[in-house]
């Protein structure tokens, strides 16, 4: 049986209590993209400033549970300063981590295929997850996976919508 300690690792609680890159960025130059989890009312607002193919700056606001908030916080810390290609690779890798159960739940399979989470990159050992590994325990709590992936799906949307 999965215990609460599998879900609420110390590093997750740390990001929840002291979220990184919390706030807003002026738009433009940053893009503002909203993500919703209609199931629970969680919402994430991402401000992404893309510059020369790089995530020059990123901020996150909105409201949600410890999992969605900490996942968003960890994500901003992980992609800030990275190239868009590196950010996309990290999204694929993270969603790969979350994918098996998500597909079993039925809801997000299409989105996963679109993101290529099951394709190239999902298991790429060169893409380091670092602290994000702590979120692995979420897959033992299937209804919470959408909390963990909310900000990542929102980032995908931001990258897709970015002017070429």
């Amino acid at each position: 049986m999965a215990g609460l300690e599998d879900l609420y690792r110390e590093i997750i609680l740390d990001h929840y209590r002291s979220p990184r890159n919390r706030g807003e960025l002026p738009t433009p130059p940053a893009q503002r993209v909203e993500g919703f989890n209609p199931l629970c009312g969680d919402e994430v607002v991402l401000f992404v400033d893309l510059h020369d193919g790089t995530v020059a700056d990123i901020k996150v606001s909105g409201q949600g549970c410890s999992i969605s908030q900490s996942s968003g916080s960890m994500m901003t810390a992980a992609v800030k300063g990275k190239s868009v290609a590196e950010a996309r690779a990290l999204i694929r890798r993270f969603k790969g981590l979350m994918s098996i159960h998500e597909q079993a739940l039925g809801g997000e399979a299409d989105q996963l295929d679109e993101d290529g989470a099951d394709g190239a990159g999902a298991d790429d050992p060169d893409v380091k997850l670092g602290d994000l590994e702590a979120l692995q325990g979420v897959v033992k709590f299937p209804v919470r996976i959408k909390c963990a992936t909310l900000s990542w799906n929102t980032l995908t949307q931001a990258l897709d919508e970015a002017p070429a």
């Binding site: 609460l4 879900l7 609420y8 409201q63 549970c65 410890s66 999992i67 908030q69 709590f141």
Partner: peptide, 10 residues
């Protein structure tokens, strides 16, 4: 201020 999802999980 604890999110209801976290409350209900506990």
């Amino acid at each position: 201020g604890i999110h209801p999802h976290d409350v209900s999980q506990v």
